[in-house]
Amino acid sequence: MKFVRWLADIDRRIIFLVIAVAVVIPLIFPLGMRVKVTPQTESIYKEVENLPPGSNVLVAFDYDPAAAPEVHPMALAFLRHCFTKKHKVIIMALWPQGAQMAVSAMADVGKEYDLVYGRDYVNLGYKPGGDIVIKSLGASFPEVFPADMAGEPTAGLPILAKVRNLKDIDLVMDLSAGDPGIPAWVRVANALYQRRVAGGCTAVSAPQFFPYLQTGQLVGLLGGLKGAAEYETVLAYAGKASRRMDAQSIAHLVIILFIIFANISYFILRRQREEKREGPRTGPVASA
């Protein structure tokens, strides 16, 4: 009973330590578990595959470093896919730190391909305003982004020569960690301008976008690290997400075990309390 009581009031530092070990060990010694690809990931892959080479893909980096462990690997995988298919990538951000996240992503991905800035990709930087920025892009790209992130005029860039407004964009990929994010792109780029919109987000926010998937307003959805690992799997590429999924697997398992142990101790102690309240059982009482 002492053990059950200890289990019920376990020091949270022990929980922290167990979680730390559960995360660190699979990162050092990967288990290489196979990630099953879901239809919502596969549909994004197919969308990029089916676009003719040279298509304009707008990638919105609407996240910050806090969400990077989940969202950044999907940005890397998606950019790799776009550049492999020779699509033109237009990068922008509705989050202040998003543009810098894109710089970091391009530093990683750019060196693997023979890319020319302004011809194969462009980073337009951050623009505050959420929905209104997207709506304004529907009218004119150069008016919203007269200069790129470095402050250079966008007017002479070959990649934007044929992009007047959102209607010239073949696919929008929003990598989002909150607001403004996927709902804004669905509301404006899809509902108003009928653009194909795909999304990538943290695992905790993915469930709220399922109605958009069912209605077809979202082409597909990458949810959390699992979504990123699925995209890497479908690209046959072992990136950061696939390696981290082992750690997430073990961490989930440990949390589930914690929940089970906590409930076992809860029920044992509850039964004990009830028995104390009712008094000791002495067998059936004979009626007088």
Binding site: K36, K226, I250, L253, I256, I259
Partner: peptide, 12 residues
């Protein structure tokens, strides 16, 4: 618990 298990490869 089901979603947590289904969300990671170890679940299956």
């Amino acid at each position: 618990v089901v979603v947590m298990l289904g969300q990671v490869p170890i679940g299956s």
